[in-house]
């Protein structure tokens, strides 16, 4: 638990960190970014909260059980989409060329053109959930365990 200034600024900054992470996850197919990077940014927001508020007060509302649900949902989205292309091969991008998500952008630099990479944005969301939940769970559990050890000594 840090001072009041740090706590106020952390509760203000966490909004921007989370929105930036979600932006990186959602725009992974057309700008620099993707599921891993955005998930790491979201997990760094959780690290900011842990540093500012202390791991015990964070653990009251952010249990690692719920984070593991997040990880499992992300993995299920990813593997389900991988099985979705099973008509041709595993991991076949079956949405490219379909009428909904299948708009293929013109080759070369194309600012302003909508590039929807088939299953790639949805896989981005799945892997983003997986990485964000996983790294947050690791940070939270390790912070909790080391705090307990400090109290013991």
């Amino acid at each position: 638990m840090m001072s009041k200034i740090v706590r106020t600024m952390a509760s203000f900054l966490i909004l921007f960190v989370l929105i930036y992470g979600l932006y990186i996850i959602m725009h992974g197919h057309s700008t620099p970014g993707g599921g891993f990077q955005g998930g790491a940014v979201v997990a760094s927001g959780v690290a900011l909260l842990i540093v500012a508020f202390g791991s015990h007060s964070i653990h009251r509302s952010l249990l690692e059980r719920r984070l593991s649900i997040l990880i499992s949902i992300g993995l299920l989205i990813f593997i389900g989409l991988a099985f979705g292309g099973m008509a041709k091969t595993f991991f076949y991008n079956f949405l490219v060329g379909s009428p909904i998500f299948g708009h293929i952008p013109p080759s070369g630099p194309n600012p302003g053109e909508m590039s929807s990479g088939g299953v790639i944005p949805i896989m981005d969301i799945g892997v983003g959930l997986n990485v964000a939940g996983g790294l947050s769970a690791i940070l939270l559990v390790m912070a909790l365990a080391t705090t307990v050890m400090e109290v013991e000594e």
Binding site: S30, S107, P109, S115
Partner: peptide, 10 residues
């Protein structure tokens, strides 16, 4: 340059 076509310079 980075292999991203959106605003890629030539």
């Amino acid at each position: 340059v980075a292999p991203i076509y959106t605003h890629a310079p030539a």
